[in-house]
Amino acid sequence: MKKAKKRKSGFMKTREDVIFDTSNIIFMVLLCLVMLYPFLNQIAISVNDASDSVRGGIYLWPREFTWHNYEHVFENASVLQAILISVLRTVIGTGAGLLCTAMVAYAIAQEKFVFKKSVTIIFIMTMYFNGGLIPTFLLMRDLNLIGTFWVYILPTLISAFNLIIMRSFIEGLPKSIFEQARIDGAGDFRVFFQIVLPLSLPVIATVALFLAVFQWNQWFDVFLYNSSNEYLTTLQYELMKILSNSATQTGDMASAFANSGGGSAEIVTPKSIQATMTIVASLPIICVYPFLQKYFVKGMTIGAVK
């Protein structure tokens, strides 16, 4: 890698390069502003007094600073518990999903595999239909998965989308590598673990990210299968709960003590909780990306890994 970089800098920058780079950088800076704004805006709303936020007009800076929205979220005892479950399901779900997806992807990437086409088609089709809410629910019940942690992991082990992505990357690897390994007497498992996995780091990182984000953001399966099991709810679900709760709080206040002023009591509103929730729920998962980036931000030379 180092070598490649050195060589690169050895070339003179042409005029075209300079123009290209400059406009590219300007474009990227503008793009970043557009992409960053919503988050800064949500942060500002999340640390602004909820009652004041009703007026609107909060952009990048809070008008009446307060931590109350965050206190409101974290004073909820189940949130900490839920974070643990969220982390667990993300880690286990990503790990298990990655291994299973990669294995099947490897198999269906093999030209010689007898069931190559059938298995591929069987998985692809699952992208375009589903049996519906109630049949799926009954299946989970009959498999005794309801009320367990595994209902988060098992049904989502392999997504056809990730599988196909991974397969096409593996297919893109030079055939000579496999052939060489086989001549050396390596079996499929050895080829898979020792050659294909290390060579596919960029796609593994990509699929890991997809899986992790998917697992982290899920709340619907909690709603369906584990809502009455308070030890298995996830962060997203608990936040949804706090959010839907915030909608009544003020209505409740208004009806009970209309016109009493309400000046002293700090309230929360759906808007302020939504903003707080956006930050609380997305910051941890956003941080995953920079760690995975190193696997594909640089670009690699396949020759070098051999």
Partner: peptide, 14 residues
Amino acid sequence: YQWQIGDAWNKLGE
């Protein structure tokens, strides 16, 4: 309906 504007009402009453 009054119950729909509770948030605004409270803020104005503050």
